[in-house]
Each structure stands twice: as C-alpha cells, then as structure tokens.
Amino acid sequence: MASDLLGKSGRAMLDALASGTTDPTVLSDLAKGQLRKKIPALREALTAFFTGHHAIIVTEILAKLDYLDDAIGRLSTEIDRVIAPFADTVALLDTIPGVDLRTAQCLIAEIGVDMTVFGAAERLASWAGRCPGQYESAGKSAGGKTRKGSKWLRLYLHEAARAASRTKNTYLSAQYGRIKARRGPAKARVAVEHSILVAAYHMLDRDEPYHDRGADYFTRRRDPAHHARRLAAQMDALGYDVAFTRRETPPTDTPKAA
C-alpha cells in the first residue's frame, strides 16, 4: 500500500497505533501526499486486530530506529569533521561512476591519499585482493582465487561496483555487461571493483578527476587502425622495425536495378 513504511505517512500511523489509536478512519486520515488517494483502501487495510501488546512492540522498534538514526547523525557529523582536510580529494573520487560521497570517504579511510606507499596501481589492487589470482601447475597457468584483502575495502568496492553496473552509458557498466555475458556476474563485479580501485589510484596519484572511456570503448577498441597501431607498438617493443600498409578493398559490384 505504502512504498515506504517509515515515510512521513507510515511513521505517523505507526506512532498513532503505538499511542493507542486503532480507529481505521482516524489512522487513514494521517496519510499525506499521493497516499491520500488510497484512503479507502488504507481504511480497509488498517481494520485489524491490534492490542496493547502490539503497541508495546511497535513502540520499542520505533525507539530503536530513532536511536540508530540519531547515532548515524552523530557519527556522520564526526566523519565530516575528520575528513574535512581531504574534502577536495573526496570530491575527486566522487566523480567515479558508482562512488558516492560516503563511499569516497571510506576509500580514503582504507587506502589513504598517498599512493607512493603502493608504488603502482597493480600493487594496490593486489594488496586489496581485487585482482585475479594466478595458479600454475605442470607448466599451465589458470585463474585462481582472489586474496581476501581488507574486509571493509572489499565491502565498499562491492557497493560501488553494484552501483556502477547500473549506470547508463559508462565504461564501467559496459565492462560489467561484457564480462557478465562470458564469465558470470560475480567475476564481472570483481573486474569492475578492480577498475574502480585502479582509477582511484591514478586519480589520487595525478590529482585528476575521473575520465570515462565511454560505453562504446570496447567497440572502438576493435577498430582495425587502432589494432594495427597496437600491434606495431608490440613489434617495436620486441626490437623490430615494422611498416604497415593498408590494402585497398576492391569495390563490391552491385547489381543494377531492372
């Protein structure tokens, strides 16, 4: 009936029930906004068996929820005070798709802001346990399990990857969809977590905001000219001088209309 039981309307009805009001007409009249259109249905739904015993239980639950809300507010104020010197860095990480303000604060709390401690993005990913493991037996390499790494960092990256996978027209959502189709959602999520962490490393190291590669990155990567340049760079690294010449594609004969 109500999408949010603890919204303004729901909370008002629960408080009234806890205080001893059980008249469905009075309770349904506490509805606010769009929910008032459902007053007849609310009146029918609120016609139920509700005793003093139930009122005590509801009162205790609401008191716990109020305490938790107050505690979250106090802790949030303290976090904002402590993280204030790094406000610019938090704003920087907040530009990554899937990373909100609180996640950015948590990332800084776990990995810090000085990336020279790690020396390379790959080392940070390895330390965090957000890169594929490697297992070798009888001369054959196979993917292994990822190391556990930091429990809390893993949790924050998990939530960020879930949010990033739902974004529209971003590299991270495209990466998730591409890997999910071939290797499943779990491996796709870890890959996105790895990408977020690597991006965070370079952003903190260079003091630059996030630059999205775009949702069409994997399509553009298949461009023949781009692929040729990549092969040329690989051959150059091996010590070969290579010159590529593109063949002219002969025009296709199209039948004339009758």
Rank of each mutant, 00 (worst) to 15 (best):
A2H: 01
L6F: 13
K8F: 04
S9C: 09
R11N: 05
A12S: 14
A12Q: 12
A12E: 07
A16W: 06
L17R: 13
A18I: 04
S19D: 15
S19P: 03
G20Q: 11
T22I: 15
D23E: 08
V26E: 14
V26F: 05
L27S: 08
S28H: 05
S28T: 03
D29Q: 12
L30S: 04
A31W: 01
A31V: 02
R36T: 15
I39V: 15
E44H: 08
A45I: 03
A48Q: 11
F49M: 07
F50R: 05
T51R: 06
G52H: 07
I56S: 07
L62W: 00
K64W: 04
K64F: 10
D70I: 06
I72L: 15
G73I: 08
T77Y: 05
D80V: 10
R81K: 13
V82D: 04
P85F: 06
P85C: 07
A87E: 15
A87H: 14
D88F: 13
L93E: 08
D94K: 12
T95W: 09
T95D: 12
T95R: 11
P97S: 11
D100V: 08
L101G: 06
R102K: 12
T103E: 00
I108H: 03
E110G: 00
E110D: 02
I111T: 03
G112H: 05
V113T: 14
M115Y: 00
A125K: 01
S126L: 14
W127E: 02
R130T: 05
P132K: 04
A138G: 11
K140S: 11
G144K: 11
K145W: 05
R147Y: 07
K151R: 07
R154L: 06
L155D: 09
Y156H: 07
L157W: 05
A160P: 01
A164I: 03
R166I: 00
R166D: 07
T167E: 14
T167F: 04
T167V: 05
T170Y: 05
Y171A: 05
S173Y: 01
A174Q: 02
Q175W: 01
Q175S: 04
Q175L: 15
Y176N: 02
I179N: 02
I179Q: 04
K180Y: 00
R182K: 08
R182F: 00
R182D: 03
R182N: 01
R183T: 02
A186I: 12
A188N: 02
A188D: 02
V190W: 00
E193G: 03
H194Q: 12
S195E: 11
S195T: 13
L197T: 07
A199P: 03
A200F: 02
Y201S: 06
Y201T: 03
M203N: 08
L204I: 10
D205K: 14
D205Y: 10
R206S: 10
R206H: 11
Y210R: 10
D212A: 10
Y217Q: 01
Y217F: 15
R220H: 09
R220F: 00
R222E: 13
P224S: 09
A225L: 08
H227K: 11
R230K: 14
A233H: 10
A233T: 09
Q234H: 14
G239L: 09
G239K: 09
V242M: 11
V242F: 08
V242Y: 04
V242P: 01
A243D: 13
E248R: 15
P250W: 08
P251K: 13
T254R: 10
T254E: 11
P255W: 07
P255R: 13
P255Y: 07
A257E: 11
